[in-house]
Design a protein around this nucleic acid. Structure first.
Lengths: 123, 123
DNA sequence: CAACATATCTTGCGTAACAAGGTATTTAGG
DNA sequence: CCTAAATACCTTGTTACGCAAGATATGTTG
């Protein structure tokens, strides 16, 4: 039995849709305040009621990219109890990048919405 | 002058955003009626005022995927004047697929919109 | 000290959009 | 007739990213 026979061929579609949006998502969450990796994963799940989830294996590369790009700064902190955490904080450049990405996302979403509003052939 | 100095570092972002949306886009355009490859490219440009463009090198693989998936049927036609064209037409399965993709896209876009509406840290 | 929880990081895979280049057919111009 | 341009379709290689899976390290608890 193939995937498509099981009706599971759609499994990967959300994955594709997330492409290009993850940086924006992470920057947006960090704009709410400093956070560490696991916390970002949890926040994302919470603030979208599970509609937009990410595993840590996906998140860390994103954070690394943001750091390299100068959008975030990093700080280790060892809490009174528990494992050391790596806190990420938005830079001014990161804030600008966030605005830019937000704008581009909105533009794209609007174009899609407009296109999908076009009438189909009546049957 | 580097790309980022020209503010062109975002060139690739739209490409990523399109990921996963192209099948939906093509199915939607075909729902307006039968069309051939070049025609679909032109329609997309026209109906989005250039906001969403695609080259034929991108389109043909999409059409091939749709054909393999049974979402479209194909028919060659040689017009009175000009080169033979390959016309694509939506199947019933393609219509279902279109609805499904439309739903998934909308769900995703709504989740994004909701997330981006969350307040930032006041400064 | 064993088992579990927390947290970070790495590797390999699959896929999709695209640029670039290629082919075939038709039409137009000299 | 020959060449050039236009139309249309197709293929190849590159690149980037999301993710599953697993590795590592530290801390907690019974």
């Amino acid at each position: 039995m193939t995937d498509s026979e099981r009706g599971e061929e759609r499994k990967g579609i959300e994955r594709e849709l997330k492409r290009g949006s993850l940086e924006l998502i992470v920057l947006h969450l960090l704009a709410q305040g400093e956070a560490y990796g696991y916390e970002i994963v949890a926040k994302l799940t919470a603030q979208t009621n599970g509609a937009l989830e990410v595993t840590d294996g996906t998140l860390y590369p994103v954070l690394y990219r943001l750091e390299r790009a100068g959008s975030v700064t990093v700080r280790w902190e060892t809490p009174e109890r528990g494992v050391p955490r790596k806190y990420y904080r938005l830079t001014d450049a990161g804030r600008k990048e966030l605005e830019q990405l937000e704008h581009e996302w909105t533009t794209f979403a609007k174009a899609m919405a407009k296109l999908l509003r076009q009438d189909r052939e009546p049957r």
